[in-house]
Amino acid sequence: MSDSKAIHAPFHAREPVSSDSAAPPPRTPRRRSRILAKKPVKPGDAFGVPGHGSSLMTSFVTIVAMIGIWFAVTNLHLIKPLFLPSPQAVYAKFLVVATDGFANSTLAQHTGVSLLRVFGAFALACLTAIPVGVMMGVSRIARGAFDPPIEFYRPLPPLAYLPLIIIWFGIGEFSKVLLIYLAIFAPLAIAARAGVRSVSIEQIHAAYSMGASRTQVVFHVIMKSALPEIFTGMRIGIGVGWTTLVAAEMVASSSGLGFMVLNAAEFLASDVVIMGIIVIGFFALCFDALMRYVERVLVPWKGHV
C-alpha cells in the first residue's frame, strides 16, 4: 500500500533525489567551431577545392602592374617610341583618330565595320554550327557526313584557304564574312558535339522511362545538358573570329580595325597599331564577359551537378 501511495504521490511530495544522482550543472556555451557555424560553409573552405575563389583583385593588380611597367619603360626612354610608344602617345592618337579619323574613316566607322563582320559571321555560325554539332552527337550518319570535312579544315589557318575563297567569291564583303564564319564554325560545331556526347546516359534512360519521346529527349535533356560545352565553344569561336578579322581585312579593304592596324604598320605608326590592338581586345573582353553572364543565367547548375 505504501508503495502504491509513493507511486501516485505528486511530484513535489516525493522524496528529493540524492546528491549522488543529481544532474550535472549546465555547461557554459562554447564558441561554435567553423564546421558548426550558423552561416553555410562555402565550397572549398573546408577541404580547399583547387582554383576556388575570386581572382578579381589579382587581375586588377596585374593590369595596374602592366600599365605601370609600360609607363616606366617608355618614359625612362628604355625603348624607342618607334617600337613601343608611351601610353600618353597612344591616348593622344586615340583622340585624334576618334575625331579626325585614320585612312579616311573615323575610329567609330572602323569599329562599326569590324563589329558587323565579326558578329554577323558569329550569328550565322551559331545558327548552323550548333544544330550540326547536335546532329553529329545524336546521329552516327550525321557524324560520318560532317566529321571528315570539319576535322580536315579545322587545323588549317585561315590564311591557307583565303586565296581559294578570293578565287571563288571575289574580294567583296561576302568573302570576308565567309572567312570569319568558317573560322568560327569548326570549334563551335565540335564543342556542341562534345556537349551532346558528355550527357549522362542515366538522364536519358530516366527520361525514356517517364514516357519521353526521342524529340523530347533531344530538346529537353540532351540540349540542356550540352549548354555548358556550347557556351565554351561560343567563347572560343568568337576569339578565333577576332583573330581571323585581321586576315579577312587584308584584301581589298578600306575600313575596319584590322585594316587600320595593317595600314598603320606599313607606315610604322606603332601608336595606331597599339591603339587598334587595345580596341580589339576591349570589345573581345566585353563580349566574353557578356557570354559568361549569360551562361550563369541560363546554366545555373554548371559546376553543381
Score class of each variant (00 low, 15 high):
80 K>H: 10
76 L>T: 13
73 V>G: 01
27 R>C: 02
44 G>Q: 04
70 W>T: 12
61 V>P: 04
68 G>I: 10
56 L>P: 08
59 S>K: 12
67 I>H: 05
86 S>G: 12
61 V>N: 05
51 G>D: 07
26 P>C: 00
45 D>N: 11
47 F>R: 05
59 S>F: 09
85 P>L: 00
70 W>L: 06
53 G>N: 09
77 H>P: 02
78 L>Y: 02
44 G>D: 11
67 I>C: 08
73 V>Y: 09
76 L>H: 03
86 S>E: 07
79 I>V: 15
46 A>E: 05
59 S>E: 05
25 P>I: 00
60 F>P: 07
66 M>Q: 09
32 R>N: 08
40 P>L: 15
55 S>R: 14
68 G>M: 09
39 K>V: 14
68 G>Q: 04
70 W>C: 06
61 V>L: 15
55 S>P: 03
66 M>A: 15
36 L>R: 13
72 A>S: 12
32 R>V: 03
66 M>C: 14
44 G>M: 07
59 S>T: 11
33 S>C: 01
75 N>V: 01
65 A>Y: 08
73 V>F: 08
57 M>R: 10
78 L>C: 00
66 M>L: 14
28 T>Q: 01
57 M>T: 11
31 R>F: 03
32 R>W: 06
79 I>W: 02
70 W>Y: 07
66 M>H: 04
86 S>D: 11
68 G>Y: 09
51 G>E: 05
32 R>F: 08
45 D>Y: 12
58 T>Y: 08
65 A>C: 14
54 S>N: 15
60 F>G: 14
50 P>S: 01
59 S>L: 09
60 F>W: 15
85 P>G: 08
72 A>V: 14
79 I>G: 04
64 V>T: 13
69 I>N: 04
